[in-house]
Design a protein around this nucleic acid. Structure first.
Lengths: 243, 243
DNA sequence: TGGCTATTGTAACATAATGATACAATAATA
DNA sequence: TATTATTGTATCATTATGTTACAATAGCCA
C-alpha cells in the first residue's frame, strides 16, 4: 500500500475500507527493458509500489484503476488482479511511523495506517511512451525503474513485483496482453524482444513470427520504418480492443 | 462469507479483520460428477459457500485452510486463491439481517456483519471419500451438491462457484492438481472422466492416456481392479506430494 | 465351459504444431 | 555500387496431438 494525500486521511480513515490496500505493479517497456513505476515517500528513501485504498462505495477494480490512472495519467489501462498478500508477517508499521514522523505527523499507535493490511495485488500494462509518471501527494517522486535495478522496497514489495512478473509471464501465452505494453504500431522484432524480456529466454524468430501472425490478431500497417542499415520491417497493429 | 459460530462473534467483530471475508469453493468428485460443499443457515433456506473471517494475527492462507479443514475434517488440503470479489454491488446485508433475526439476534445497523465485505475466493480440492462434511455452528447443514443442481445461493456465491470452476479448468493443464480430487489409487478412466467433467468436453482416450503417462508423475500400482465385465484396468498413484 | 460383451492398453498412422536452417530482399552506409 | 545487418519467409526436421484399429481379458450367460 501507499499512503494517500494528507487531505484525504485522518486518524480513523473515514471514507475508506480499513485493513485492505491495493498495490499496483505498473509495467512499462522501453529500450528492451521491463520497467516498473516506483515512488519514494517524501523526505525519506523508502521506495514503494503505487498503491491506495478502497473507498467505502467503490468497486475494488475501480480503485485499482484509479490508482493506476493517477500515477500514469492514462485511461483505459489494462489491469489484472494477480494475488492477495495476506501473511501476518507482512505487518510492519515502523516504516510508516517514520514516514509520518518525518513529515510532521505524530500518529497514535491506533492510527489506521499503522494497522495490519491485507494487500490486493494488481498488475497494469501501459504504453511507456504515453505514460506520465506522477507522484501522489505524500511522495517525492514517481519514476520508471528497470526491473533489474530497483532500489530496496518497503515491506514485501519486491516479492510483489516478482510475483506480478510471474503472473504476467504465465498469462502471456494464454491471453493476448503483451500488446498493451507497446505503442499502437510496432515491429515484429519489438514484440519478440518484449516477449523475450518477460519470459526471460530467447525465442526463435521464424517460429515466433509464424505463431503470432497465425493468431490472426495483427494487421500489417502499410507504412514502413526507417532508421537502420538494413531491410525495413513492417509495422503491425493489434486488431482487437484493449480489455 | 459465512457467519461464524455465535460464541466467536459480537457486535464489533473483536479479534477478526473487518470488511474482509474468505469464501471457499470446496470441490469433490463422485459418481463422475463435480460436487461442491454448501451449507444452509439455521432455520432458513439461505444457502452459502463455506466461509469465514481472518483472525487478527492469522495468515490469510491459514484462515482459508482453517475454514476448509473445519468443513471437511481433513488436513493437508489443496487450496488456491483464485479471485477477489470486491464490487460494491455485492453488498447486500438483508439476508444476514433476516438470518440473525430468525435465530434470535437483533443486530444494530452498525453490526460488523452487516457492513460491506470484500471476499477472497479460494478453491479447495479434496478426496470425496475422505471428507466428512460438517456444518459450522450457525448452519443446519453442510452437504455435497452436484454442480449442475445447486440451490440458489446468497449474494454472488453462484458466480463465485462459476469463477472457481473456470480457474480450476485453466490450472488443470499447467499445474498437476486434478489428482487431489481422487483417492490415492485410481484408474486412468476415472482420471479421464474427472478431466472431462472439469473441462466440460470429451477427450480421446489414447491421447489422454499417452499424455498423462508421458508426464512421468504416475506410478502403476501392481494391484488390479475388479468389478466390471471387462478387462481389469491398472491402478495408478500420483508420485509427487500434495502441495 | 466357451463364446459374448464391454472396456482397457497400446500400436500405428495422419495431421498439426513447433524447432531449426537457409536464403533472398533491402535500407542505410561507406 | 558493394557491404552489412536485419527482415520475411520457404523448407525441412522433430515433436506433439488427433484418430483408427485391434488384441487382451474379466465377468456374464447360454
Amino acid at each position: 500500500m501507499s499512503i494517500k494525500p494528507a487531505d484525504e486521511i485522518n486518524e480513523n480513515g473515514t471514507g475508506f475500507i480499513k485493513n485492505v490496500a491495493i498495490d499496483t505493479v505498473i509495467f512499462g517497456f522501453h529500450d528492451n527493458m521491463l520497467k516498473v513505476l516506483l515512488s519514494a515517500y517524501k523526505n525519506t528513501s523508502y521506495f514503494a509500489l503505487p498503491g491506495g485504498f478502497i473507498r467505502e462505495k467503490e468497486n475494488l477494480n475501480d480503485a485499482a484503476r484509479r490508482v493506476a490512472s493517477e500515477r500514469t495519467g492514462l485511461d483505459d489501462i489494462f489491469l489484472e488482479q494477480f494475488y492477495v498478500f495476506g501473511d501476518y508477517a507482512r505487518y510492519d508499521p515502523e516504516p510508516f511511523k517514520i514516514i509520518m514522523e518525518v513529515n510532521g505527523n505524530h500518529p497514535s499507535e491506533s492510527h489506521w495506517l499503522l494497522q495490519r493490511f491485507i494487500s490486493i495485488g494488481y498488475y497494469a500494462l501501459v504504453d511507456f511512451t504515453k505514460a506520465t509518471p506522477t507522484p501522489a501527494a505524500i511522495f517525492d517522486s514517481c519514476n520508471w525503474y528497470d526491473l533489474n535495478s530497483m532500489p530496496p522496497l518497503i515491506q514485501d514489495h519486491t516479492q510483489i513485483v516478482q510475483k506480478a512478473l510471474e503472473a504476467l509471464g504465465a498469462n502471456l501465452d494464454n491471453k493476448l496482453i503483451g500488446f498493451n505494453l507497446l505503442p499502437e504500431d510496432f515491429t515484429m522484432g519489438e514484440l519478440q524482444r518484449l516477449y523475450e524480456t518477460i519470459l526471460g529466454k530467447k525465442l526463435l524468430r521464424p517460429a515466433f513470427q509464424r505463431k503470432i501472425l497465425g493468431l490472426g490478431i495483427l494487421e500489417r500497417v502499410a507504412k514502413k520504418w526507417t532508421g537502420g542499415a538494413h531491410k525495413a520491417p513492417y509495422l503491425y497493429r493489434f486488431i482487437s480492443k484493449k480489455m
